[in-house]
Amino acid sequence: MRGFQLMKPAYAEAVERGIAYSMLPAEYGGGGLSNVDFLIAAEEIQAVDPGFGTTVLVNGLGLMPVWYYGTEEQKQRFISRATADTSGEFIVGYAASEPPGSPGGTANFDAPAAGGAGMAVAAVRDGDDYVINGRKYWPCNVAGWDGQGADLNLVVVRTDSEADGTSGLSAIIVERGTPGVTYNLISTVGQRSAQNSEIIFDNARVPAANLIEGTAGNGDLLINRNFAWSGPVAGIGAVGIARAAYEAALDFAKTYTAGGASPIINFQYPGYVLGDVAAKIEAARAFCYKTAHYIDTHDYHGEMIGAMSKVFSTELMFDCVYKCMQVVGVNSLDRKHDFGRLLREAAVFPLYDAGNFGMQRRRVHGVMADPSFDPRTVMDHKFQPFTKEMEGIGTVQGR
């Protein structure tokens, strides 16, 4: 939490410069950036501090679904409220993940099984309100700067206790100060300037008007669309960290002689490894740009390619950071260099943002297994619809 709070002045400047809400449409006060433009900025931010990049990214994860699925009144009430704030502190959270246990849920939110499989945070209609109970674990930004709640939190909830994960989920905005909502902060090993938290809902009453209209029964599609958008952003963050490691290792290799007659860059191993790393960075960056352009030109859909680019880039870049450490050798373990931090940051990317060995690969699998799938879709820049029939593959034994 301390690292997150130290980023508050930087966040205020990001608000002032239009970065904090740059991904949102200009008609509601956002920056109106294309996804390609947003990635260019995101790489520069995340090459320095990916945790801060995550904080900005989550503003989009929390508010872009309001743009996609909300009524005009909801867009004005939530998006325009965020972008018009002049305090430099307004922040938005996004809550999907849940812990096991009781109360608790599972990561396979779209499991096609009844009886509470998947997400279990329940929102029960009671007059003009929804009453929410349950726990979320790992969401970012949700506790706000003081641990008492973000200004707005988009929370995926189960609004139909009898339906499965492909039809019983919705999304609702929980505002700061809502009684019955508490937060427990999580201490993480990487991206420590971002904030992760547990949320506990205990008969929290939220106005029914805060349920994002188009998400009713479609919270599953919202989650897949959200993480498709964030996939290349995570990917470009990994590119930024690998770039930082590559430039540091190259500088080391050009100045360090290991007691020999010339710097180690003049030997084949450092030269070949760093050449490979440089090529992989360019490949991953190009894939992220392609993905962002695809999303820009397909109505902010890219469920398959978004997952592909995230998996490919984050795993490849983790390997690149470690290869750079091998070039530097045992000196990379010396804290006077930055490789230890870069390795920790790199390790986060394949694990967060829907997890590569979780939702990301499952989404690709579900699209590929569908009878309608054309294997040349991405190559030919064709629109690939993502449907409920593509969800849940591999989550129930025997399916």
Rank of each mutant, 00 (worst) to 15 (best):
G115A: 09
L185G: 11
D319K: 07
W229N: 05
P232W: 01
V239L: 09
T255A: 08
P139M: 04
A216E: 14
V311H: 11
L343S: 10
G219K: 05
Q5M: 12
T314K: 03
W229R: 06
S97L: 02
A278F: 01
R135G: 02
Y269C: 01
M308E: 15
N141S: 08
A369R: 07
V157A: 14
Q74P: 10
N59E: 11
S34F: 12
P100T: 12
Q195V: 10
M325P: 02
P179V: 05
A84L: 04
W229T: 02
R399N: 08
M304G: 03
S80W: 10
Q360W: 00
A216K: 14
S161Y: 13
K254M: 10
Y21E: 03
R341A: 14
N226T: 10
N133M: 08
G127V: 05
D49K: 11
A114S: 14
Q326N: 14
E16M: 04
K323L: 14
K336I: 03
R361E: 03
P270V: 03
D220P: 01
A204K: 13
A96M: 04
V48T: 15
S262R: 12
N59H: 15
F90A: 03
R344E: 14
S372T: 12
V189F: 11
M23A: 06
R81A: 15
F252S: 07
D353F: 01
G29Y: 09
S87Y: 15
N226V: 09
Q268H: 12
G104T: 10
K136V: 04
G134N: 09
V36G: 01
L57N: 08
A249T: 06
M390A: 09
M379S: 13
F38A: 12
P179N: 10
A354R: 00
I45H: 15
A242I: 03
F312V: 02
S197H: 15
V156H: 15
E389K: 12
S230W: 00
T55W: 13
Q195H: 15
L61Y: 02
R81M: 08
G219E: 05
Q268E: 15
G259L: 06
V48P: 11
D370W: 13
Q195I: 06
A307V: 05
S161H: 13
A216M: 08
G53E: 01
S34G: 11
D164Q: 09
F357P: 00
N224Q: 07
V348L: 13
P139F: 03
A248Y: 04
A245D: 02
A347R: 10
Y21C: 01
